[in-house]
Amino acid sequence: MVALLHPDLLINLTLRDLRSQYKRSALGWTWSVLNPLVAVVVYSAVFSLFLRIRPTVGDPSGLDSYAVFLLVTLLPWQFFVTSLTGATRAITSNSSLVTKIYFPRWVLPTSAVLARFITVLVEMAVLLVVVALWEGHIAFQWIPVVLALMVLQLLFTVGLALMISAANVYFRDIQHFLNVAMQPWMFLTPILYPLNLVPSDRQLFGISYRTIYQLNPMVSWAKAYRNVLYDLRFPSAERWLGIVVATVVVLALGFRVFNRLEPRMAEEV
């Protein structure tokens, strides 16, 4: 069973992505810290200072900080986006490998996601420590829950990455479509603002806006991350159910689609 997962191949390809990512750049790994840092400064200025969006006050933590409110969802979101954009080209950009050597192709998009996962693990750890020192907001006892959420998000992302990377071999429009889709997707997820700003009293075809809004599976993750790391509260059973169902469905569908599209990949890539 373990051999089926090709751990050595996954590890080596993940290391390849991680090692080559910042080769020949002067700042190297500093870039992976600079990126969320710049984002949090810009978003805080625009949304907190100019648009005056108030973060919800953490319950029961009592925390009231837009930067922390933002970062606990922004980091997982950036992991999601960079994983998908990286994984889209995972097969097409490795065409020399795919056409010359046989190995299970699913490891290509999966290792692309894994490399970003390692990065976000480090980022989240740094975030917890900085927030603890800065705000005195101790979330360490919640680490197992955060890890569970992150692993589920990893599996969900792998499922999507499998679908997208395989489809992109046949339709190169996918990679462009993805770039277009990620921006609205971010704004339709409660990352920059709290969920309670989405109206629940206005309706579309008899269904409230907030209900429709919550069909987006990323809403569940954003809300759950915020529960654990900002409110210091265990996410509701409803959230967990949404997360687990989305993960299982997308992962199973991902492998199914990938296996269907795999046989002719070497010809089309």
Binding site: D8, L9, N12, L15, R16, R19, S20, K23, S96, I101
Partner: peptide, 21 residues
């Protein structure tokens, strides 16, 4: 075929070996 130009020979041996199983 599986070599990555930015990685060292040593790293590529492990990578290529893993790809070959």
């Amino acid at each position: 075929a599986g070599f990555h130009p930015e990685l060292t020979g040593r790293e590529n041996i492990y990578l290529n070996g893993a790809i070959l199983g």
